[in-house]
Design a protein around this nucleic acid. Structure first.
Length: 119
DNA sequence: TGCTTGACATAAT
DNA sequence: CATTATGCCAAGC
């Protein structure tokens, strides 16, 4: 099967579906979990390709800055922000979420000093 | 069929 | 901390 098949999108959607309410994940994080390390842009592209009545919580995916990415259509980001606020995700005055607080933590962590992510 | 843009990320300045 | 530059892959034209 061609690696550039729609399956790539499905994989991304599967990861996004795992994000619990009240938590958010970055594009890069989703990409890595989807098996596409470094291809954060494709995640954003996949989100853009999502249909309207989708069950995928696309609004829980934000950029590494902790802010909702700007879209081609003005006002769209506000919708995403509203959905997140409804789930309990708070935004600061700069329109950024407390990543260190609402960041989704996939899988158990190696407790202890591991509070650090590979760079 | 080839160039440009993009719901990004990271390093450098 | 913001701004700039480069890399990645896919979709649009």
């Amino acid at each position: 099967m061609t690696p550039s098949s729609s399956r790539t999108y499905e994989r991304i959607y599967a990861v996004v579906r795992r994000i619990p309410a009240g938590r958010v994940a970055t594009y890069g994080q989703v990409a890595e979990l989807a098996g596409l390390p470094g291809h954060a842009r494709q995640v954003g592209y996949a989100m853009h390709a999502l249909p309207h009545g989708t069950t995928v919580p696309w609004h829980r995916v934000i950029n590494a800055k902790g802010e909702v990415s700007r879209r081609r259509r003005p006002g769209g980001e506000l919708s995403q922000r509203m959905l997140l606020e409804e789930e309990g995700v708070g935004f600061d005055l700069r329109g950024r979420v407390a990543l260190g607080r609402v960041r989704w933590r996939p899988r158990g962590r190696v407790r202890g000093v591991g509070a650090r992510r590979a760079s």
